[in-house]
């Protein structure tokens, strides 16, 4: 308190953790990982009406090495599962996963041999967004919940992976 009153309005004090979390949550760059129908709603979320860029997701990075958020949008099938894990492994820490849609969260309406019954069998998921497909606003709600989750993260915590 004393430091701030001495210098007026040009200085604020906070903790490094808060600044780091604020920076991370405000510039979540998703990796392009559109699989099926949910990908179209993800594209709509990034398009002109439900502009996702105002939440910090300015670009969808094609290379996973430049992304920190993987939005698994669509059903994950047997052939795609190892690819998904490889993309997740290529992303640098800190990274988060949003499982968008019913098929990514739990297999959706396809309870059969071909669909992985929930992407959390392969990668750790932070936020599940239900819907078939979820509205763009639902996806944004999921991203905002993820932002709240990130703002509670501690710098020295270990993440299970």
């Amino acid at each position: 308190m004393g430091l701030e009153t001495a210098f007026g309005d040009s200085i604020i004090t906070t903790s490094i953790e808060q600044v780091a979390d604020w920076g991370r949550k405000s510039s979540l760059w998703p990796a392009l990982f559109g699989l099926a129908c949910c990908a179209i709603e993800m594209m709509a979320a990034g398009a002109s009406r439900y502009d996702l860029a105002r939440f910090g997701s300015e670009v969808f990075r094609a290379s996973p090495r430049q992304a920190d958020l993987m939005i698994v949008s669509g059903r994950v099938c047997q052939k795609m599962a190892p690819v998904l894990r490889q993309i997740y492994d290529q992303m640098p820490e800190p990274k988060w996963v949003i499982s968008m849609g019913a098929c990514a969260s739990s297999g959706g309406i396809f309870n059969n041999y071909a669909v992985i019954q929930g992407v959390d069998k392969i990668v750790p998921v932070d936020v599940y967004v239900p819907g078939c497909p979820p509205r763009p606003e639902a996806l944004m709600d999921g991203i905002m919940k993820l932002q709240e989750k990130i703002s509670r993260e501690r710098l020295v915590a270990r993440r299970a992976s």
């Binding site: 699989l35 099926a36 669509g74 059903r75 099938c77 047997q78 052939k79 795609m80 690819v83 309406i109 396809f110 059969n112 041999y113 071909a114 669909v115």
Partner: peptide, 9 residues
């Protein structure tokens, strides 16, 4: 990579 087994379903 997107084979969902829809015909079987």
């Amino acid at each position: 990579f997107l084979h969902t087994g829809i015909e079987k379903s």
